[in-house]
């Protein structure tokens, strides 16, 4: 048994391989509170995960980590929280999430903010942050699951802005109604197959969209992209 603090939950992760232990080392919990819930990965889970990609053989430790993450996806909505596929930064007291289709450049844009604004920008998570509500305030938390670049902080920020990144030769940023980017957002949510967890995820998404500003960032990969996005999102609110 190993306890971890994830999104201020005490989570008991029952793992067998060192990969997950090393991955979560920053999130180890040393307090005395009991676990809020348990994530248990079995050898059968690992085999099933491997069977999903029969052409590529992955190390068992890596597969165990993916399984643990999938189980978190199911468990979190039952505790007013969910995992998302996107990156989140903290800047000037705001929590800004970037979502994009795979390969569009979410990580590149995130790094541009860091490059241009340095210490003003803290990367909370570059790939799979947890969103957790306290009353009506959504907080984005860092997690050990942070993509191949491993951009993450064991920290949280109140989420205020949701940005959809689209590639463009020129840079522009504009605000949209949440419903206008619902399709794009739904593609970046990790919808559990469990009906209760799936319904809760939709409820949390609705609550998130009711309090966050929603933006479209059409951008290239120049520093100007971050400067224009910063100026619009941070400067004009």
């Amino acid at each position: 048994m190993a306890l971890y603090s994830l999104a201020d939950f005490v989570v008991d992760i029952e793992n067998k391989y060192d990969f997950l232990t090393r991955q979560c080392v920053e999130y180890q919990y040393s307090g005395t509170a009991p676990a809020d819930f348990t994530v248990r990965v079995t050898e059968e889970d690992i085999r099933a995960e491997q069977n999903m990609t029969p052409d590529i053989r992955y190390p068992a430790g890596y597969l165990e980590s993916v399984c643990a993450y999938r189980k978190l996806c199911i468990e979190l909505p039952l505790h007013d929280a969910m995992l998302m596929h996107g990156s989140v930064i903290s800047c000037c007291g705001r929590g800004i999430a970037f979502f994009a289709r795979s390969g569009v450049g979410k990580t590149t844009h995130t790094m541009l903010w860091k490059q241009v604004y340095g210490e003003q920008v803290r990367i909370i998570n570059g790939d799979k942050p947890i969103l957790r509500f306290f009353d009506d305030v959504p907080f984005a938390y860092g997690t050990p699951w942070a993509g191949k670049e491993k951009l993450q902080s064991n920290d949280r920020v109140p989420l205020t802005d949701i940005c959809f990144i689209e590639r463009s030769p020129d840079n522009s940023v504009f605000r949209v109604e949440p419903v206008e980017r619902l399709n794009a957002l739904m593609q970046q949510l990790l919808l559990p197959s469990d009906p209760a967890a799936a319904e809760k995820t939709l409820e949390l998404t609705d609550r998130m969209l009711s309090v966050c500003n929603v933006w479209v960032i059409r951008c290239n990969i120049s520093e100007e992209a971050a400067i224009i996005a910063y100026g619009t999102i941070i400067g004009e609110i």
Binding site: E199, L202, D206
Partner: peptide, 13 residues
């Protein structure tokens, strides 16, 4: 469920 004022359906199970 209604999300952002739009009723949506997703398959589950």
């Amino acid at each position: 469920r209604n999300v952002a004022g739009q009723a949506v359906a997703i398959a589950v199970g």
